[in-house]
Amino acid sequence: MNQKPLLSIRNLHAGTEDHTILKGVNLEIPHGEMHALMGPNGSGKSTLAYVLAGHPEFQVFQGEVHLEEKNLLELSPEERAHLGLFLAFQHPVELPGVSMIEFLRTAVNETRAAQGKEPIPTTELLKQIRTLARELLGSDEYISRNVNEGFSGGERKRNEILQMLLLQPKMIILDETDSGLDIDGLKLIARAVERLRDNQRGFLVITHYYRILEFLKPDRVHLLVDGKIVASGTYELAVEVERRGYEAILQDLHAPTESR
């Protein structure tokens, strides 16, 4: 049994050069758990995802982030990925001219090399990629294209999940993967995520909507408002957000303070 949490965030203050967005985030995700992070627009959900993934536009002013024993904040984005951190982007970029196969092969083999493993034989890797592409994108024709070039919004999201399944990371952050997806796409992605769920992996599902959580049934739900987690609870918290909206819940949270 792992005693230490898989991901541990303590008093994280971060933002851009002239603007603090995260104002003391505390969060622990144990091995084998899926946590959901909800919150109104501009609350800092995506910023948290970017900070964890080491985006150069964001600075950490204070706090600690550990992935198991390792201090994530000391590592480059690729070193974080080699440790098993994966971010499925809200808006995955196109990589002009970079072929899917070359991109995936480099990503898989670089990660394996960093973990002291041999490169995966190309034919085997190709087979895996084709299978995943057929399953998630409906056709293996996509892998002969360039990364995300000419992909629709939904296809890009599915491509993120393809990469997740291929890389088999340890700590997975899904940043609004459900936005822009139709109901079939949502179910497909939920099933793919479920496949990776085991007692070693951790998930942080960032979302605005209750719908994906209906499929995934997270162990914990957190509410991020103005750069801080203001409430945590079980799946019921997500149900309440869906039913009453953020504003009503926030009013309840502030009520004792105001009555004093």
């Binding site: 150069p56 080699h82 971010l87 970029v93 991109f103 670089e110």
Partner: peptide, 10 residues
């Protein structure tokens, strides 16, 4: 950044 988050060195 996108590529580096997939483990590809700079």
């Amino acid at each position: 950044h996108y590529m580096r988050t997939r483990g590809i060195p700079e």
